[in-house]
Design a protein around this nucleic acid. Structure first.
Lengths: 230, 230
DNA sequence: TACTATAGTGAACATGCGTTTACCACCTGA
DNA sequence: TCAGGTGGTAAACGCATGTTCACTATAGTA
């Protein structure tokens, strides 16, 4: 699966390098010179290939959208036979990417934009969310609810929230919610709530008393060695 | 309630102007000259008051945090007597701001940052989310769930998602989810799902508990006097 | 009155930016 | 052999940026 770097044209190297830098610092926070240096080419070559920095941005955007579309296609095709697998679309996409991929970070920046690519992605996610709800409906696992459109939007927004707030949540929970371990914990709660509401879990065999303690005191964090913050 | 502009020092005028521009275009997308022009002062005065553009940014951040803290304080103090009103924290905050306030937009940009202010705000929201869950717990309206910490984080993330995705959701649903009308629709679905899961609100038999009735449906809210909003 | 602190400005400065220009080193086919 | 396309670069250009500097105006105080 791993290609020697020679197999990539310098054009695609520049594009991928830009994607990573844009994801980390935002497109405005990165200069053409930085991109060129990281890709080990001259700034002039960047312009030569993409016309302008904005052109590069657009190319990165559309490449991103194409990549996500490819993943989503695989996903929707193979999920239909197993509708009981209510998986988060975001989790599924992330699972299909290498763990050090800058793409999730880039998407989360993108979604805050008013750009065309952002709208396209957002609508696509919404479509998939609606399709998922429809599957659940047919399977009798869910109801349309009082306001089906809002219901689908709500589910999608919750899904994307993990992506957007990933860093903060990682710090808070001391586990990346989009890592394998984190997804397990997160999905557990999500499924519990989606299947029976916030009241669920008391019916489930859970030792209330102990769990409650953890919840009550936010300062009950373990593994905080040597309070360092002033 | 409206002050003549003379009551604000030019320092605060610059700060407020910067807040608005930062919210709309991002701090990197706005120049000192633009801020100065919008505030009707010279660029030199901006630097004179805040030392640098970065200094201005920090001042805007901390002013934002102070403002939000003030609102949250009012909110938490007055909410405790009425724990049946499970209101979104974000919705509550937005309600306390003028409808054309740039603060929600600024917060949503801030939350994607790794800045100190962002972490402070995020932790604060999480605390409130935990407190809310605790109230529901005491009232017997919710269970701690299998993973209480994640549960609280999930609820908070869902809440913030509306703020972060506001523009996209507005386009999708053709109504701003943080407007009065939009909040009503949104909260309706949220409460339905939180109270009994995705199965709620339909012919699907999910009545394994009576909890459904306890968490009030939004249609039963009193004190909605003379609906003026379209 | 004179002194001093505060608020404010226009013009300039140094820098870093995106981009352009002129040029080089290869291939490849006729 | 050479014409021409392709991929690449160093150096410079013009400009917008954040910031500084020298200076004015105003108001309070001794």
């Amino acid at each position: 699966m791993r290609l020697p770097p020679d197999d990539r044209t310098s054009r695609s190297i520049i594009r991928d390098t830009a994607l990573r830098l844009f994801a980390d610092y935002g497109a405005d926070g990165v200069t053409v010179r930085q991109i060129a240096a990281a890709a080990r080419v001259s700034p002039a070559l960047v312009i030569r290939h993409f016309g302008s920095k904005e052109g590069l941005r657009e190319e990165v955007d559309s490449h991103l959208v194409r990549t996500i579309e490819a993943i989503l296609k695989v996903l929707t095709e193979r999920r239909s036979p197993a509708p009981d697998n209510l998986q988060s679309v975001v989790e599924a996409v992330v699972t299909h990417l290498p763990s050090d991929s800058p793409i999730p970070r880039y998407i989360s920046r993108l979604l805050l934009d008013r750009s065309r690519a952002a709208r396209a992605l957002f609508h696509r996610f919404f479509e998939i969310g609606q399709a998922t709800v429809n599957e659940l409906l047919k399977a009798g696992l869910a109801a349309p609810g009082p306001d089906p459109e809002v219901r689908a939007a709500f589910l999608m927004a919750n899904d994307l929230a993990v992506l957007l707030l990933r860093e903060h949540l990682t710090e808070l929970l001391r586990v990346d919610p989009l890592s394998a371990a984190g997804m397990k914990r997160w999905a557990g709660e999500v499924l519990a709530i989606y299947s029976a509401g916030l009241g669920a879990g008391s019916a489930v065999p859970v030792r209330k008393t102990e769990k409650q303690k953890v919840l009550k005191r936010p300062s009950t964090q373990r593994a905080t060695k040597g309070g360092k913050q002033k």
